[in-house]
Design a protein around this nucleic acid. Structure first.
Length: 529
DNA sequence: ATAGGGTTAG
């Protein structure tokens, strides 16, 4: 049984290919055979290229890209489908550079892209720096035998131009599509909406010959992304049928815009009225996001029990992490930790969420401990990790540890230091009263300081009563944002502490004259009760 | 045999 596949293929392969084939693929073919009839009943006939392509597809499907590459190299012949299968595999698993590399290789091998090739390549460059290639790919298609756009290439191109923000290209591409279908229309509406042309989008939406659930959901989502929740809900209410995605888009729209109660209400309406629709992991994830935002621990816990019963989180890193994040943000760091420990799979985001929980709870030392464990587990930190750790150090006054992390960012972890990291360092030094060092960070950073950076310094000068540096920070802020109320409050606080009351009065008067008003303070505890 | 359009975590 074990040698099933090998026995079948062995006589048909050249001696050069045979040994490495056996070594590399015997196991895969056996597994493939177990779940598929492909190799059965096909006694001793030479495997056709379409057989090889199916095998190749099977490897790419389960993200066995390395063995897929090996198989691709060693199979007796490759046609356009083989190349496209490889491209699609790389594309599905976000290996854009590989897509580009194989695309170029296919040219060198004398192949010309098919419509399949073009749509795969376009899709794979979306959201990457390779998206500059989109107009070139378009130009290639137009000048090739493919010139009239198929629906596939057409919708892919529409997504592409949306991605690079070229509004004027949308209409042009749409006209070039030979036979437009719902998908092409949907891509057009999505493009207009995403690029902020609401009326164009609506016009296109209304002139669509057919609309499906996706068309409606696209529009709802687009309004959500433009933060126009009312209109989103309006469209949502007009839908004649809705599926999980439609509900989830609307619910996550409320969640992302801080409307916890609306999200909750809609979630309940879904459970009560849409009996054929079951919440999936995206739906729950959005709800946990809303709970975390509102610190709604009780609801979060109830939703967690629903998830446990559903078994959805069993194997889902994203969902589990959103629950973990909910616990951490609702102030229950112990539950967050327990959940983290129970997770079968963890990724960088899960670790960041846990570290963020410790940071928020002021447990800097604990955060650093977990960070050590994270590195021991072979997880590489990113900018978010470092930002979280720096803020954790700030809360507990761990200046030395923070500085050490900051200095190792580029050298040890290869992470670019961003504006937020500098702001964190200013905060770290500032809170610890080392104001000169805080200023030094500002002077040496490669960006023009923003309001957050100056604000960190100003705040520190407030708590450590440094007038001179406080004025420097205030000047920095007012250069960026005139009459920011924090300037007046902090400066008069410092002056008050120094006893220069005349200046305090002058500042108050100046503030009144300019109409700068102190920002309203509110109790965070009250708002969740 | 290979492709396009709507949702999710820090």
């Amino acid at each position: 049984m074990m040698i099933w596949g090998c026995r079948l293929l062995a006589p048909r392969l050249t001696t050069a290919v045979y040994p490495s084939f056996i070594k590399g693929y015997a196991r895969c073919i056996y597994q493939y055979d177990a779940s598929n009839e492909l190799l059965c009943g096909n006694n001793l006939t030479a495997p056709s290229i379409s057989y090889w392509n199916k095998l190749l597809k099977e490897h790419t499907r389960v993200n066995q890209m390395q063995s897929a590459q090996k198989l691709f190299d060693e199979m007796p012949d490759r046609d356009a489908v083989s190349w496209n299968t490889m491209l699609a595999g790389f594309s599905n698993f976000k290996q854009t550079d590989k897509v580009y590399q194989y695309y170029q290789m296919s040219f060198q091998c004398g192949l010309r892209p098919t419509a399949f090739t073009i749509s795969i390549v376009i899709t794979s460059v979306l959201g990457t720096k390779f998206n500059v290639l989109i107009p070139q790919l378009h130009a290639y298609v137009v000048s090739s035998p493919l010139s009239a756009l198929s629906v596939y290439v057409g919708s892919a191109l529409l997504r592409g131009y949306t991605d690079i923000g070229d509004v004027s290209a949308l209409g042009r591409v749409f006209d070039e599509i030979r036979v437009k279908d719902v998908s092409s229309w949907n891509a057009l509406v999505f493009g207009y909406m995403t690029l902020g042309l609401q009326s164009e989008a609506l016009r296109a939406f209304k002139s669509m010959p057919d609309k499906n659930i996706i068309s409606w959901t696209t529009l709802v989502d687009a309004y959500v992304k433009n933060k126009d929740i009312k209109r989103a809900r309006d469209i949502f209410d007009q839908m004649v049928e809705r599926n999980v995605v439609s509900w989830t888009v609307m619910i996550s729209g409320y969640a992302q815009n801080g409307k916890f109660l609306d999200a909750m209400e809609l979630f309940l309406i879904m459970l009560r009225t849409a009996h054929q629709v079951r919440p999936n992991s995206c739906t729950y994830s959005s709800m946990f996001d809303a709970c975390a935002d509102e610190s709604s621990f009780i609801v979060g816990m109830q939703l967690h029990s629903r998830v446990i019963k559903s078994g959805l989180a069993q194997d889902d890193v994203i969902l589990s992490t959103s629950i973990l994040d909910m616990y951490a943000k609702c102030g229950n760091i112990d539950s967050a930790y327990k959940l983290f420990e129970s997770m079968a799979k963890k990724n960088l985001v899960s670790w960041n969420s846990l570290l963020g929980g410790y940071a928020r709870h002021g447990l800097g030392t604990r955060a650093l401990q977990e960070f050590k464990r994270m590195k021991e587990n072979g997880i590489k930190p990113d900018q978010v990790t470092l930002l979280t750790l720096l803020s954790a150090c700030t809360h507990e006054g761990l200046v030395e540890e923070g500085v050490q992390l900051y200095e190792s960012m580029g050298t040890e972890f290869g992470i670019e230091i961003g504006m937020k990291h500098y702001a964190c360092m200013v905060n770290l030094y500032g809170k610890a009263g080392q104001l000169e060092k805080a200023v030094k960070v500002i002077q040496e950073m490669p960006f023009k300081p923003d309001v957050v950076v100056w604000g960190a310094l100003l705040g520190a000068c407030g708590s450590h009563s440094s007038l001179q540096l406080g004025e420097l920070a205030a000047l920095g802020i007012s250069n960026l944002k005139k009459d920011h109320p924090a300037i007046y409050s902090l400066l008069s606080k410092i002056h008050g502490e120094k006893g220069t009351w005349t200046t305090v009065c002058e500042l108050r008067k100046l503030m009144n004259d300019r109409g700068a008003r102190k920002q309203n303070a509110g109790s965070w505890v009250e708002s969740i009760a």
